[in-house]
Each structure stands twice: as structure tokens, then as C-alpha cells.
Design a protein around this nucleic acid. Structure first.
Length: 302
DNA sequence: GCGTCCAGGTCTACC
DNA sequence: GGTAGACCTGGACGC
């Protein structure tokens, strides 16, 4: 293995571990956390099927990266490898408007103080959408199993136990029965297959969603039109696209809301929507951060 | 060890 | 527009 070290600056107020632990993505491969060394890793796919394991840590306001690859990276690859890492950590996302809004609201001042609010995402929208479908209608352990299967069965092998996330082309080349048997994705299999086929054929450009000029409502409808993406999944994909107008309710956050705001009593979704409506276009992010506030009290990494 | 039940979002058919 | 039932898996539970 050849090692290559590099670093890049983190934006002011950026919190490395709070970004990584912003939601469950950090425990899904090809992401992984090494608690002993205090590093966060990602298997990055580069041009020409070259893979690199990038181990990141924060030191003195910089993200320091140790990249390992089977052969020496070319100058181009050394340049290209930084981009997906920055995308995952949302380093280029402008947070000032959201933080200004949070400062205005005393109960949310902890957010800018703690450097919370950046939600970890995959290098590609395709990977985020596949993973989001894998979170629907099942336990978290089943989501972990499905994503693990996607990488080990259809990803490229980096070394023992470490694989890349498969491309749309590779998934599209499989059958419904194959996914059901090997990925254990059950009735989601035709949805995942259709998504992979549409993306690999160029009929659906999910990557363009991150820079789409259309209104959030319009984008929500587009995301929602992907089979398997209902209100919950589409609302949460929008958060990973930097749009926070939808709450993306699932049973876990509903339960959290009932505990925090309704004395444990069940309330209608419309009541939850109404509660956050005054928070405007950032309501989805305020909502998620409020529901996960207690996570931030842990000593990282946990 | 085996069978049954249940939780978890989304889709489709139907009213 | 709202609702019921089906979809599939894994875990919990009872026997």
C-alpha cells in the first residue's frame, strides 16, 4: 500500500465529529469510524477503478487525511480525491444564514455554538438515494445489513472487509431476484433496480439535484417521483441536497416529538408540521437537530 | 428450534 | 383526497 498525506482547511466554526455524527450515515459503509485512533474513513472511488481509503481527523482547524491506495496516485488523482471528501463533510456549504437564524432563537443558540447543522452525505446523490430507500420500512439493523451487502457483494474490493459503494451500472446489471437473495432488499429490489437503470442509462440525472435551480417544492416532487421515495425519504434526501423545508417524518422522530412536545402523547403529523412552520425554510434542519440534541452531549467518537 | 406476530414506509387499488 | 391492504425482513415472543 502506498500512503499519501494531505490536508485542507475547515470553515470557521466547523465541528468535525458533530458533522460525522449528524445522522446514521457514518455507520454505513463505505464510511467507518475508528474509535481507537479517532479517525473517520471513507473508501473513495477514483477514475480507472482506482480505490483509496481516506482516513480523516481534525487538528488545529484542518482536516488531515491519510490516503492509502494499492499503487501511487497520479497528480490528477491526488487533486480529485479531495473533492468527494469535501462534499461528504459539506465543507463548502454556506451556513451563515442558518446560524444567524439560530442565534435569533434562544432555544437554538446551541447549534452555532456547537458547530452543528452540517449533515454528512455520500459523494454521490445516487448513493444517498439508494441508502435512503434502504432505511424505509425496516429496522436500522436491516438498513445496515442491506448497505453492507451492497458494498461487499457489488462494490469493488479494497482489502479484506473494505469495499467501495457500487456504481449504478453494476446494480443495473443485476436482477430483481439477485438483489432479493444477495442484498436482502426484499420488495425494495425493483425500486432500487429501476433507479439504477434510469441513472445508468442517463434518463435520470440525480447528481444534478445538488445544484438544481428549481424551487424546493418542485425538487421535492421530482425526488418523490422515484419509486420507493415517499414523503419521509424525499424529505430527508432534500436535507442532504441542502434544502430544509421538509421534515421527513418517520416513526423514530415522531416518537421523539411526542416525548419532547406532547408529554408522550401521540399527535397528528399536521400538528408537528404546524409546530415547525414558523421556522421557515430551515424548519427541517431545526427539527432534526432538536430531535437529536441529546446525541451532541456524548464524548466523540462514541 | 420452530411458528407466529409485529414494526417499519411506500405503492396501488378502491371508494 | 383519504384509506386499506400488500409488500419483505428480522427481531421478539411463546411454546
Amino acid at each position: 500500500m502506498i500512503s499519501h498525506r494531505f490536508q485542507f482547511a475547515a470553515p470557521p466554526g466547523f465541528n468535525f465529529w458533530r458533522t460525522i455524527y449528524s445522522h446514521g450515515w457514518c455507520s454505513l459503509p463505505p464510511f467507518s469510524i475508528q474509535k481507537e485512533s479517532g479517525t473517520f474513513s471513507r473508501i473513495v472511488s477514483l477514475e480507472d477503478e482506482v480505490l483509496a481509503e481516506c482516513m480523516m481527523r481534525e487538528e488545529g482547524g484542518k482536516i488531515k487525511v491519510l490516503a492509502r491506495s494499492e499503487s501511487a496516485l497520479t497528480a490528477d488523482q491526488k487533486t480529485c480525491i479531495k473533492h468527494p471528501l469535501k462534499v461528504c463533510l459539506r465543507l463548502d456549504e454556506e451556513m451563515s444564514e442558518f446560524y444567524a437564524e439560530a442565534w435569533r432563537l434562544p432555544r437554538f443558540r446551541w447549534i452555532p455554538k456547537w458547530g452543528a447543522g452540517r449533515m454528512l452525505r455520500a459523494p454521490t446523490v445516487f448513493e444517498d438515494v439508494v441508502k435512503m430507500i434502504c432505511t424505509t420500512n425496516c429496522s436500522w439493523s436491516l438498513t445496515e445489513a442491506m448497505v453492507q451487502n451492497f458494498t461487499t457483494v457489488l462494490g469493488q474490493r479494497f482489502e479484506e472487509g473494505k469495499y467501495s459503494f457500487p456504481t449504478p451500472e453494476v446494480i443495473a446489471g443485476k436482477t430483481d431476484a439477485f438483489l432479493r437473495r444477495n442484498i436482502r432488499s426484499g420488495y425494495r429490489s425493483p425500486y432500487l433496480l429501476e433507479l439504477a437503470e434510469r441513472v445508468s442509462s442517463g434518463r435520470l440525472d440525480v447528481e444534478s439535484w445538488r445544484s438544481s435551480p428549481v424551487s424546493t417544492e418542485e425538487l421535492f416532487k421530482t425526488v418523490r417521483s422515484v419509486k420507493g421515495m415517499g414523503d419521509y425519504a424525499a424529505g430527508n434526501i432534500l436535507k442532504l441536497l441542502g434544502r430544509y423545508d421538509y421534515l421527513g417524518l418517520d416513526s423514530w422522530v415522531r416518537g421523539k416529538f411526542y416525548d419532547l412536545h406532547a408529554n408522550g402523547r401521540k399527535v397528528k403529523d399536521a400538528t408537528i408540521e404546524k409546530h415547525y412552520a414558523p421556522l421557515g425554510k430551515f424548519r427541517g434542519l431545526f427539527f432534526w437537530l432538536e430531535m437529536t440534541h441529546d446525541w451532541y452531549k456524548h464524548k466523540f467518537p462514541f
